[in-house]
């Protein structure tokens, strides 16, 4: 139950966002096609980083982007493309995410008179079923967001036998740590803790039960070359679609 620290090359200039982006990019390397939904600057940066580091793979499709959107058949094409198995990885979030990887993008409390209402489920109730590697992404890691049981299931983590389900949860990355999802066990496993955070803190701040190995490494800090890519050309590309994010994080 110790955190092992990294010994290799790591950049002194890496921002917390760079560490997240780099950890996500590692999960995308080698894939053929990664799609990025709405309001997702960190996943977008990760996909562009994976693409830059592996010579043009994966192809990256970003909803709403002028430069990284290859769809010509309207709003439905992303879902049709995924339904055919032409998208290998996608990102979903959740106002709440529970220990069975159910996600809630709709409301807290009674959906008819909710205590809080969020935008809605978007394409999650399709994408989560058909995209093989869905990475859950949530920047508030607290017992309020990572809960034992979600109030509303926008899309379930697991399906009954007999339901067509080639896709599903692969990992959950937060501002504190990275979990992988074990579909056989139906639960998350702690994989690494971001620098500056501890396994004890993860235990306190997570509302669901998960597997914790004896030795949990620290999430790798990217090397100088990676950080230069992120803070240079990739930040420039982010600024076109996410000016607020690029200004806040990278001073663009």
């Amino acid at each position: 139950m110790t955190v092992e620290t990294q010994t290799g090359d790591k950049s002194q200039d890496a921002l917390p966002e760079d560490i997240l982006i780099s950890a996500i990019a590692e999960m995308l390397e080698g894939l053929g096609h990664v799609a990025i939904g709405a309001s997702s600057p960190i996943p977008m940066a990760a996909a562009l980083l994976a693409n830059a580091r592996t010579g043009g793979r994966p192809q990256v499709s970003v909803l709403g982007s002028q430069d990284h959107n290859f769809f010509t058949d309207g709003a439905k094409e992303l879902f049709d493309c995924a339904g055919q198995g032409r998208i290998d990885a996608f990102f979903l979030g959740g106002a709440q995410i529970d220990g069975q990887a159910n996600i809630n993008l709709v409301s807290i409390g009674d959906p008819d008179r909710p205590k809080a209402r969020f935008p809605g489920s978007f394409g999650s109730a399709h994408m989560y079923y058909v995209v093989p590697r869905v990475i859950l992404f949530r920047l508030e890691h607290t017992p309020r967001t990572l809960v034992e049981r979600v109030d509303y299931i926008s899309a379930p983590g697991l399906s009954e036998p007999g339901v067509f389900r080639p896709g599903g949860p692969y990992a959950l990355i937060t501002d504190r740590c990275l979990f992988h999802f074990d579909k056989g066990q139906g639960r998350f496993r702690l994989v690494s803790v971001h620098p500056g955070h501890t396994v004890e803190e993860i235990r306190e701040q997570t509302g669901f039960a998960y597997e914790e190995p004896d030795h949990v490494p620290e999430t790798a800090v990217p090397d100088r070359e990676t950080v230069a890519l992120l803070q240079g050309p990739i930040a420039d590309q982010l600024a076109k679609l996410y000016p607020d994010f690029a200004t806040r994080v990278y001073g663009r």
Partner: peptide
């Protein structure tokens, strides 16, 4: 958001490809 919390709307929540 305010109208939903106040119960003022009939809501038919969907998912993108169901609308399409």
């Amino acid at each position: 958001t305010a109208a939903v919390k106040a119960g003022e709307l009939r809501l038919l929540d969907a998912t993108c490809p169901a609308i399409h």
